[in-house]
Design a binder for these strands. Structure first.
Lengths: 228, 228
DNA sequence: CCAAAAGTGTTGGTAGTACACCCATGA
DNA sequence: TCATGGGTGTACTACCAACACTTTTGG
């Protein structure tokens, strides 16, 4: 006799935020239910019967952290039979990018706390969430060099150096300022505005730039391909 | 009151085979149960409670087609609420590559027939399986240029022209014979054997080549990166 | 005037692309 | 001998990487 299927389906989100001083951060929540009560974990939860996977992600993020993401992509599905110590739960992981405005968090009702953590200094994590974050980091590193998704981590207007720093932080290696700027500007989807950066300390202020998404899609259709 | 989750979890496999004359093929089965009875579909089925996702794929493939794959990778998870007209079924799709030996199929018990179809001449397909195949093709095209997975579609020993043809078929564009050979041989993981090709018709026979997987992994560790 | 950040061009090397003729075999 | 498929080298180009000094501002 066949046993009926008893597998639960969850979604988890690896949300990246970037902050000029603190570098690349991941959004975590502290669980307030068992298993792994009071342990840090990725925001996420069970998918409802009638919602899509993306809707589930956005709902959970809203409930648990109040954060709305502006770039979301499916990452990988994790289905090892024992990844949840109690039940069989298969999780479809997504990763998302948010702009710096959301750096002030308000914890939701489903979790005790939501907090940004530096990707190099993660706390102990529930389930296989550490593995999921590593996987997401790998994907982000791979993707940022052949699709201009880095802009989703920056403000609408940003000094060029912010982009440069972002790439060096994400890739974990320094980038040559001049060559990097040449490469980026050659594509033609980055616009220089006439606004000037206001610095905190000393230094020569530069103009602010803006990523023209429409132009990028248009250029992409015409066959250019972004690649660093 | 919360309704309990009622979502089923399935796996589906896009298995690619390559045949010198017939090109790139996908393995399909004819369904013998509703919904979509007698319609062609990807091999796959519900995951059992205690098996891993990969075990589920291999079991279903064995049951439905008798095929054992030698390269398997998770593709994407498809979860649109209405993708199955009867129940909510979320499917985790994998794609696999098989060597040409398996071109003779023996249909299994769960399906009426298993058959190879040219990727350019697919029949009507059940569920969203056409979308899944397109997605897999895109992934294969993307991946074959930066990881040497093409060899998984060829015999252990193959003439160089087989590799060249494979790439031109998968990428959908001609490749320059001389430049292609230069590029590939420079990596150093392809070994020329002293066996000679036996042709069907006329033509100058060339030596057979062999992909040295161990050497590839070793070189990869040392930092070379395959890229066409 | 010093420290901090931003702006800016040139050169050399290399890797990629384009390209055409000869050779071995079977019919 | 002809048709088929396999084998091979060179030259040009274009892109990429390396690299340092000057300018503007705040303190």
């Amino acid at each position: 006799m066949e046993q009926t299927q008893d597998i639960r389906l969850a979604v988890d989100a690896v949300v990246f935020g970037y902050h000029a001083e603190e570098g690349l951060q991941v959004l975590l929540i502290k669980r307030n239910i068992e298993p792994y009560q009071d342990v840090w974990a990725l925001p996420g939860g069970l998918v409802k019967n009638s919602e899509s996977l993306e809707q589930a992600i956005e709902r959970e993020l809203q409930e648990e952290t109040g954060v709305a993401i502006n770039y979301l992509e499916q990452l990988y599905s994790f289905g090892a039979p024992a990844r949840d110590p109690r039940n069989r739960v298969v999780s479809i992981a997504y990763y998302g990018l948010v702009k710096p405005e959301v750096f002030d968090l308000r914890p939701g009702t489903d979790a005790n706390a939501a907090q940004w953590y530096d990707t190099h200094a993660l706390p102990d994590l529930a389930f296989d969430h550490q593995e999921i974050i590593h996987y997401a980091l790998k994907r982000l590193k791979g993707k940022i060099v052949y699709e201009p998704i880095g802009f989703e981590l920056l403000d609408e207007l940003f000094p060029f150096s912010a982009l440069e720093k972002l790439y060096s932080v994400v890739l974990g290696q320094p980038v040559d300022r001049r060559n990097f700027k040449k490469k980026i500007m050659k594509f033609g989807f980055l616009e220089e505005t006439d606004q000037k950066q206001k610095l905190k300390g000393a230094g020569r202020p530069g103009p602010l730039f803006k990523f023209n998404k429409e132009k990028y899609f248009q250029l992409k259709k015409e066959g250019i391909n972004f690649e660093l």
